[in-house]
């Protein structure tokens, strides 16, 4: 795999992350279900997964960039496993609505494990690292669009979380936007 192809795959990964963050937003707005603290932490870690691909697109693929995403995915899997275990007992309805039979945190666990497998698979292709010292070409519109879409979604999450939690600690089981409640 050449470095150009690896960069394209990294841009695709960013679009995947953008889709995931958009789906979380859609569930929040359409189902009127506010994310709990552990749910927010999983969203944060999905956003943090984007740093590695952004660095790969800008500076060319490096094992260290993939390592950043691997560390994030392992932490994300730990957080979602924690939440799965909180609701694993028989009779526990879980937190929030289920999508296709699984709750958001179960999907998050599957997504983080998939990320670990995909990142390990990407590291198998050594040729992408050969051209590291070569001139890095300027990213095209496809890659730039991928980067700015995840940046935009992370910025929207800043606003959403500020509205939800206000300036204090987030509620364990949030049902209203704290800042909107104070304003009304």
């Amino acid at each position: 795999m050449t470095d150009t192809r690896a960069v394209t795959l990294n841009a695709l990964a960013l679009y995947g992350l953008a889709l995931l963050l958009t789906a979380a937003f859609a569930a929040q707005l359409m189902l009127h279900e506010l994310p709990c603290p552990l749910c927010l932490l999983q969203r944060i870690l999905f956003a943090l997964l984007a740093i590695g691909p952004i660095l790969n697109i800008r500076f060319g693929p490096r094992p260290s960039h993939y390592a950043l995403s691997l560390l994030t995915a392992v932490l994300g899997a730990s957080v979602s496993t924690r939440q799965v275990l909180l609701h694993i007992l028989p009779g526990d309805a879980g937190y929030g609505s289920a999508l296709l039979g699984y709750h958001y945190y179960t999907w998050a666990l599957i997504a983080f494990i998939a990320a670990i497998v995909l990142l390990a698979a990407m590291l198998l292709f050594d040729r992408q690292f050969d051209q590291r010292t070569a001139h890095i070409t300027a990213p095209g519109g496809f890659a730039q669009g991928a980067v700015w879409s995840v940046v935009g979604l992370a910025a929207l999450n800043v606003l959403s979380t500020l509205l939800e939690c206000g300036i204090g600690a987030c509620a364990d089981n949030p049902i209203v936007y704290e800042l909107l409640k104070r304003a009304s």
Partner: peptide
Amino acid sequence: MEFTALFLAITIAMVVAWRGPRP
């Protein structure tokens, strides 16, 4: 509040990764 700060920090880190120095 800590979650807002984390999202803000990640947004800044993304912009730095895209425009600023790698270290």
